[in-house]
Design a protein around this nucleic acid. Structure first.
Lengths: 191, 191
DNA sequence: ATTCAAAGTGACACAAGTGTCACTAATTAT
DNA sequence: ATAATTAGTGACACTTGTGTCACTTTGAAT
């Protein structure tokens, strides 16, 4: 029983996402969010004690969505095909990286719920990292990738590539293919 | 004549730099800056009309410092040696990228002085980009790099690499060497 | 020593965000 | 229909930052 809600969790999280992607953590305020949802500011406080709590819940939601899709990825192929799949997947979810980085902007002196979410998120992050690490190890086992380069450099490079600004508007296909090429075999011609 | 100043431009810009690097654009306020400089907030307004004007002047200062050092780079060697020099230089100035990105956070509805600085900065940016582009073209001429990969992807990758977080604390030498290796010849072993 | 100009100060009025809470509105079970 | 329950509202007090300005401080030129 009770009154009907004016906005769903999904609407709230979608609005949150676009606000955070476009204007960043600091510009995200309850006032602006309430305006987007056509609702009074006070009503949001019915569900979240403050901005950090809302954002940490939003991050959990995004992380869960991401992991769910990540787990549907085919993990049976050889290294080459898994590498292709992985890069494509990362580019399909090109804003998840930017979104999850927000966690570093949430201050420490907040509520227990926020702290719990923060630690759960870093747990997930570690789990995910472990999976990627396993993937790199597969490449090493199959002698497909260089043995002397640290895993963390490789993963760092792979994830960093999605944030390269495409100022000149290279078509997405060519863009991704070029990045795969550089990651795989470098910019230099064969000697 | 007149009274002695309590802070120099250099002190102000150094304080600005560390505040911006540590806490970002939004957390940078005249109040906090004044506290760092041990000066009243009002006195800063003697020199800068507002935060955006101060920051845009700071960016000019940083950009000039950077370009001055960039122009001392040896540009006579062959592609391989210039490539090494360039990567090393970029890593030596690893925060300039982060600092100059701040320009995108300065709003548009400000004073003429800010707008002038913004356009000068993007001019410099274009100039610098042209030099890097020339460098890539040199590589293409010498047949050292792959002809089918767009220049902007290559430059994007090079610049993005400096922002990869070294979470596992790989020693700087090994870190840079690994990145050079991946950029040059990729992660994959020779078939 | 006096005057002048630049540097510095702190109070004031304003703007925007925060968190709270008594109150009103809508919906459903009885 | 009405009581119970949940959603939503807007005013209130508070905080933090902004830009201004009359006033004070300082040091050099006269």
């Amino acid at each position: 029983m009770g009154r009907e809600r004016k906005f769903t969790d999904e609407e709230l999280f979608n609005a949150t996402k676009s606000m955070i992607i476009h204007d960043g953590y600091d510009a995200f305020t309850f006032s602006r969010l309430a305006a987007v949802l056509n609702v009074s500011r006070g009503s949001i406080y019915k569900y979240y004690e403050n901005k950090d709590e809302l954002i940490s819940e939003f991050l959990m939601y995004e992380m869960n969505r991401f992991l769910r899709e990540f787990n549907t990825l085919d993990k049976t192929g050889d290294f080459q095909s898994q590498f292709e799949l992985l890069i494509d997947f990362i580019f399909e979810h090109n804003n998840i990286h930017q979104v999850l980085e927000i966690i570093h902007q949430i201050p420490s002196n907040t509520t227990k719920r926020v702290e719990d979410n923060k630690s759960k998120l870093s747990e997930y992050h570690v789990d995910m990292y472990a999976q990627f690490q396993g993937f790199i190890e597969l490449g090493r086992k199959e002698n497909e990738i260089k043995s002397h380069i640290p895993t963390s450099v490789m993963l760092g490079m792979i994830f960093q590539t999605i944030a390269i600004p495409n100022h000149f508007g290279i078509p997405q296909d060519e863009w991704i293919a070029s990045i795969k090429e550089i990651l795989s075999h470098g910019m230099f011609s064969r000697d």
